[in-house]
Lab assay of single mutants.
Amino acid sequence: MQRVNMIMAESPGLITICLLGYLLSAECTVFLDHENANKILNRPKRYNSGKLEEFVQGNLERECMEEKCSFEEAREVFENTERTTEFWKQYVDGDQCESNPCLNGGSCKDDINSYECWCPFGFEGKNCELDVTCNIKNGRCEQFCKNSADNKVVCSCTEGYRLAENQKSCEPAVPFPCGRVSVSQTSKLTRAETVFPDVDYVNSTEAETILDNITQSTQSFNDFTRVVGGEDAKPGQFPWQVVLNGKVDAFCGGSIVNEKWIVTAAHCVETGVKITVVAGEHNIEETEHTEQKRNVIRIIPHHNYNAAINKYNHDIALLELDEPLVLNSYVTPICIADKEYTNIFLKFGSGYVSGWGRVFHKGRSALVLQYLRVPLVDRATCLRSTKFTIYNNMFCAGFHEGGRDSCQGDSGGPHVTEVEGTSFLTGIISWGEECAMKGKYGIYTKVSRYVNWIKEKTKLT
């Protein structure tokens, strides 16, 4: 034993070699072989497995989906700052455009905790909710729209109204504003409101030439003092309507412009014939205590009207009353817009006519005020429907199939267009061939041609 100890002390290297040989010859039971080890760690190889990531292109799944990435790591994937920024906006807080917040056709661009709407022409605001041009839906104005110097929408209202708090709607500024039905039992019968379409306001006024200088022999019209197929109006439903009495009662109609003036057809009036105007009328054979009678003290036909040349060209006249009318729910003026808007309103496509005229061709006159909704007829169809001249200051309205029309005794009465609950004068009943005849239409004086003249002559002093 002493000898062994001496050998170990003198030859430590020998001992180490012996131990190493023993270990190498022993069977290893701690580690699995290569094949079995792979069965336990069965993990798919990654895209760049075996390579240094710093030297390969980034992978979106590896960089940002398996674990949260930084902007720089995302930049490695896209290799483009702009594309990385677009991805980053949604990656950080989701897609803010998912709810489609942009209105009126706006395009949404996502941002971090926010979004941006790219608005089409005519709109602005956070969600493109603000109209900035009158060309689109009248700028959301209830009545009139004008573009300011910086191309912003400025709404306005006709006389007797003021802008509401929203700067879009119009509200009454006087007790009985024009064009409004205020009798409670008839307010439910107000005709369907007309909503502004998209309009090209630059070209809204037709490029028409008034044929002022045409000389033409007097034409022989049949029954051209021209509501057939209409309905009984309720008291106060058309408070701007008046009836004219002269040699015979209810020979023509008219509309209240203001307390002192009536507008009617020029062919209705004769110099030297006494005319009485009755406002607030409903049943011409009954006294309903809503009527107001006034005498006409002055007749002003349009300066281009000449019955000797043509009885229905420039067929418009103004009547001055001896005493002002007292405005109330049964006696209310009709609204008159400017030339541009009167023309736009007419193009809405349908209007209402009213009167006490004959209820059928050569038949009896109506006792109760009649009204009828009539569609506008395109000019080409209008011209083809008659052998008589249709001037540019006239328009056609009615039904091709016949059966409904204005008729004798309705002449001078109103053709009105309702705009968001307020009625505007767009025409004056003038003439036609018979009444409600198939293929024939009622012919009306186009008020847009005469609004400046009306307003100039009827100013209240």
Score class of each variant (00 low, 15 high):
E124M: 10
Q237S: 05
I210F: 05
N166Q: 03
I284R: 13
V199G: 11
Y330S: 02
N203F: 06
I429N: 11
F144I: 03
G412L: 12
P375R: 11
V263K: 00
L244Y: 03
E79H: 14
R358C: 09
E270W: 10
S423E: 02
E142V: 04
K339C: 15
T445R: 00
K362Q: 04
A207F: 06
N310L: 03
R46P: 12
G246H: 06
D150N: 08
K109A: 07
N42A: 08
S385I: 11
I297A: 09
E27N: 03
A366L: 13
E73V: 14
E129N: 11
A26V: 12
I256E: 00
Q90M: 05
L376Q: 10
M8T: 14
M437V: 14
A337F: 01
T16M: 12
T290L: 06
N283F: 09
G421E: 05
P120Y: 07
K247G: 12
N42R: 03
T81F: 10
D110Q: 14
K68M: 13
V248H: 13
Q219R: 07
G236N: 05
E98R: 13
E54R: 13
L41S: 13
E27F: 02
Q216V: 13
N135V: 11
F345Q: 02
C268N: 01
T381I: 14
K109G: 08
G442S: 04
E320N: 02
E281Y: 08
V56S: 09
S11K: 15
W240P: 01
D315V: 00
M394Y: 06
D378W: 03
V331K: 00
F71L: 15
Y341E: 05
W88N: 15
P375D: 08
G398P: 04
Q57L: 09
N393P: 02
Q143A: 01
Q370I: 02
V359E: 04
S430P: 04
I136F: 11
C170D: 01
S354D: 01
I299M: 08
A397R: 02
G398S: 08
V359K: 15
T290Q: 05
L20Q: 01
T81M: 05
C252W: 00
S255I: 11
L60T: 13
T209L: 09
G432N: 06
D315P: 01
Y341T: 15
A173C: 04
R226H: 11
V419K: 10
S220E: 04
V374K: 03
T271L: 11
G179A: 00
F395P: 02
T264H: 00
L52V: 06
V263W: 00
D410Q: 15
Q370D: 04
K347V: 03
K68R: 12
V92G: 13
A164D: 08
D200Y: 11
N222I: 10
G179Q: 01
I7V: 11
L383C: 10
S148L: 12
D150C: 03
T386D: 13
N306K: 07
C102R: 01
L24Y: 06
S25F: 12
T381L: 11
P197Q: 10
Y91N: 14
L60G: 15
N213D: 06
L60V: 15
S148A: 09
E53V: 05
L130P: 15
P44T: 15
Y330H: 13
L19V: 03
G230W: 13
L211I: 09
S406C: 13
K188A: 06
K51G: 09
C108R: 02
N328E: 01
T389P: 09
E323C: 04
N80V: 14
E142I: 03
N135Q: 12
K247L: 07
R62M: 11
T422M: 04
V296K: 00
N245Y: 12
R404N: 05
T29D: 12
I300K: 02
K274L: 07
V331Q: 00
K293Y: 12
Q57P: 09
Q57H: 09
S448K: 02
L325R: 00
V368H: 14
F424D: 01
Y91R: 15
Y450K: 01
N343L: 04
T225I: 07
R358Y: 07
K311E: 10
E66F: 04
F395V: 02
A308R: 10
V277R: 00
T218L: 10
Q241S: 03
V296N: 00
M437R: 06
E35H: 05
V242A: 04
E116C: 10
P324A: 06
P175F: 04
F31I: 15
V296C: 02
R162T: 10
G413C: 13
G413M: 14
G280S: 01
D95K: 14
V451K: 03
E286W: 09
V248S: 10
C335L: 00
M8W: 12
R43I: 08
P177R: 01
S406P: 12
V174K: 09
